[in-house]
Structures are given as C-alpha cells and as structure tokens.
C-alpha cells in the first residue's frame, strides 16, 4: 500500500473533484485513511480523470495516484510497443520507462497543451525511437528565441486540449475502412508510406492521399464540433 507523502504536502489542498479538503499536520493515521478515500475514486480511464490524476502527481508526488495512472496506461503502452513489433520484455521495459518519465516530467504536463493520453503517447513514441536510434528524436525547443509564436489565438487554440483529443479519438472511429487502415498502419506498424503501399498493393500516391483524406476528415469533424 502506498501513501501520499505527508512531508511534502502543502498546508492544505483542495481536491477539486471531490471537494474534499485534506489538512496536513493531522496525525498520520487520519491522513492515510483520507488518502485512501481520495484515491479510491480515481480513474485514469477518462480524460478528466486522468488529468486530475496527473495533477495529483505533479503537485503532491502522490504515489497512489501514480499507481492508478500506471495501471491504466502501462498495459496500453506495452500493447502499443508490441504492435510495433517490439519484443515482449523490451515492450514491458519501455512501458515502465514511459511511466517513470511521466512521473519525472509530471510538472511539465500542461493541460492547455495536450490531453494526458496524447502527452503519454508522445513520451512513449519518443522513448521507442530513442531506443532504436543513436540520436534522439529531433524536436523543436519551445524556449527557442527563433521560434515563431502564434500571431493570434487561432480558433481552436481557445479550446480545451482534452476536449480536442476526445473529438479526435471519436473522429478516428468515423474514418472509412481504407483511411482507418493506413492511419493504423502508420501509427501501429512503424511502416513508411512506401512500405504501406507495398503491403497493400496500391501505389504510393494512394497511401498518401488516403492519409491526407483521413487527416482532412478528422480536422473537418474537429472544426464542426468546435464551432
């Protein structure tokens, strides 16, 4: 059984989902019971729930919350690694590393930038790439003085990223079978567009146009939903 670390708790913190206020400084036994009660209702299986769990990890280094997050996401990250052809024990190890990275970088998680599942996906993807390449995956640097910022808030910029991720996840399910197939092959099979074309026995241009159509469809649904 794992407990929230009392010594790192602020004087009091309010649990926004339950409205419970936990006071620090009360005896250990009471705090343990409270910790158990607040984490019993935690659920990382919904975007809002996972966001709440992420905040408990970021703010309080709450290990109970981390366990909830681990139990939901580690088996999925492992499933993702296996789909991409990673051997079983390495898939398990990469899933462990992904969740460990989530714990360490939890303070950098920003719900205004990404939903928890999107954020965890990018960490898993990058760790997998870095495990197989001698150089890390190149990424832009958000602090770079050369970075050109958004001129003004784009329409979809005001939208909660969690809502956006939710709409995208639903939109994937509405793709026609041919488009869904190339999207899945691209994300799940680590195949280049030419390899996908070869496997499906269609021209390269067809793979590209199906991906473009799929992306266009997802963005159209996103645009309609956000209006």
């Amino acid at each position: 059984m794992f407990y929230a670390r009392n010594n790192e708790m602020p004087a009091s913190f309010s649990d926004s989902s339950t409205g419970e206020v936990v006071a620090a400084g009360v005896n250990l036994r009471t705090t343990r019971v409270t910790a158990r009660m607040t984490t019993a209702s935690l659920d990382a299986g919904t975007p809002e729930g996972a966001t709440h769990v992420m905040h408990m990890i970021a703010q309080n280094k709450n290990k109970e919350a981390f366990k909830v997050l681990f139990e939901h996401f580690a088996p999925r990250v492992k499933g993702y690694m296996l789909k991409l052809g990673t051997e079983n024990s390495l898939a398990d190890e990469l899933a462990q590393e992904t969740l460990l990275m989530v714990w360490r970088k939890a303070e950098q998680f920003d719900r205004s930038k990404a939903s928890p599942s999107t954020w965890i996906f990018t960490i898993a993807r990058n760790l997998r790439i870095d495990a197989f390449r001698k150089l890390n995956r190149p990424e832009l640097d958000p602090e770079d003085p050369a970075l050109i910022p958004q001129a003004e808030e784009a329409a979809d910029d005001r939208v909660d990223r969690i809502e956006r991720a939710d709409i995208v996840a639903e939109a994937i399910k509405e793709l026609n079978p041919e488009q869904a197939e190339v999207v899945r092959m691209s994300f799940y099979q680590d195949k280049s567009h030419s390899e996908i074309a070869e496997e499906l026995g269609v021209p390269l241009g067809t793979v590209k146009s199906r991906l473009r159509l799929a992306f266009g469809r997802i963005r159209k649904i996103l645009g309609d939903e956000l209006e």
């Binding site: 899933a95 462990q96 599942s117 999107t118 965890i120 996906f121 956006r164």
Partner: peptide, 28 residues
C-alpha cells in the same frame, strides 16, 4: 498537435497487455 492527438486516441484504443508482475515494483 492534432496529429499527436491521433496517437493519443489510438493509445486509448489499443488492446492492453498485462505487465509483468514485478513491473510496478521496479518503477516504484
């Protein structure tokens, strides 16, 4: 960012595979 959301959606959709018994303990 929207393309990353596709990855996030697929990770929720993937068939979960049970972790090894020692996995959580190792991470902890």
């Amino acid at each position: 960012e929207v393309a990353d959301d596709i990855g996030g959606g697929l990770i929720e959709d993937v068939e979960p595979v049970e972790m090894e018994n020692v996995a959580f303990g190792n991470v902890l």
